[in-house]
């Protein structure tokens, strides 16, 4: 231990071998962080999920009681359903729009950098600020969107109530999420620029039209990044929280009671920490399961070159 820090001299070979105290010293922030911010909380969270823990009393062991109760809890199932609906539309639609933008920008059009900046900007707008903007755009009476619908002649009975109508609240949030499609666009654009030009040239010589080139060259070549954004999008959508918390609070009629919102309310409004921990573990299991399924599928569907 005496020659531990901070010497790295090893004569001519210049290698630091077996200097574990030195490695530990450099990685100390990470080690402390993993232990205190991840591993300890994960273990405790699992323990809490097996207890009844109203914040002001000590946890009381209930075994799998919370999980059994969850399986019979209609609000749990409802929040899972709402989240699934949201993810099922928001993620693929966001990808399609991001890909469309990227394909258009990849056509070597004048002002490409300008358009790229423009489409990317919404993704860095603070979430709370965009919630304020969209609250006003989606406002049923004088919101921009409904005024536009009326302007193009939509009958008043058809004009949606968006966030105040339980059938339209989820589509409204999906629509709002599409404003951020530019994040995926930047990644797709980078991937598109890596597709070798000679692939397109030889395909054109063989008589492939634009549609065939897209389907048989472009999409397979960028499928790894498509798969990556799909998985990350799903994981993100499963944890969808802040927009719903700010804009709807879960309403109307619990139509935007998403999984993480339900979890947050259970923990920090009802102070049922054990029950909320069980919900967190089910979320973790769902995220792992989804990732596993997508990875399995991707072995068949994704083309990894090199």
């Amino acid at each position: 231990m005496s020659d531990a820090l901070p010497i790295g001299r090893e004569g001519g070979r210049g290698r630091v071998r077996g200097k574990w105290p030195l490695g530990v010293a450099f990685c100390l922030p990470l080690i402390v962080g993993l232990l205190s911010l991840t591993i300890y909380p994960v273990v405790m969270s699992f323990y809490y999920s097996l207890t009844d823990y109203p914040i002001f009393d000590p946890p009381k062991w209930v075994g799998l009681g919370n999980y059994v109760e969850l399986s019979r809890d209609p609000r749990f199932w409802l929040s899972l359903w709402n989240t699934g609906c949201y993810a099922l539309f928001a993620v693929p639609l966001g990808m399609v729009i991001g890909l469309l933008l990227a394909l258009l920008l990849n056509m070597k059009i004048r002002g490409m950098a300008f358009y790229r900046t423009l489409f990317f900007l919404p993704t860095i707008v603070p979430m709370v600020a965009s919630a304020v903007i969209w609250n006003q755009i989606l406002s049923p009476q004088h919101g921009l969107l409904n005024e536009m619908l009326r302007y193009v002649g939509m009958p008043e009975a058809w004009v949606p109530g968006w966030l105040s109508d339980e059938n339209w609240s989820k589509p409204a949030l999906v629509l709002m999420s599409l404003w951020g499609a530019g994040g995926g666009m930047v990644m797709y654009l980078a991937a598109l620029q890596d597709v070798p030009q000679d692939l397109y040239d030889s395909a054109s010589l063989d008589g492939a039209n634009a549609w065939h080139r897209l389907l048989h060259i472009t999409l397979p070549m960028i499928s790894p990044i498509l798969m990556f954004t799909f998985v990350m999008g799903l994981i993100g959508a499963m944890q969808y929280f802040s927009q719903a918390f700010i804009m709807t609070g879960g309403g109307p009629w619990d139509s935007t009671l998403f999984y993480s919102l339900n979890l947050f309310n259970t923990a920090f409004s009802e102070y049922r920490l054990g029950y909320a921990s069980a919900m967190a573990w089910i979320l973790f299991a769902i995220v792992l399961g989804l990732t596993w399924v997508v990875m399995k599928l991707s072995n068949r569907m994704v083309y990894y070159h090199s």
Partner: peptide, 25 residues
């Protein structure tokens, strides 16, 4: 820095990236 715990530590770190924040919250 070449040391023995390096690879395991790296993999533990990577595996925590999948963990939803709700679990540790």
């Amino acid at each position: 820095v070449t040391w023995r715990g390096r690879e395991p530590l790296f993999w533990v770190m990577l595996s925590t990236m999948m963990l939803p924040a709700q679990v540790t919250m």
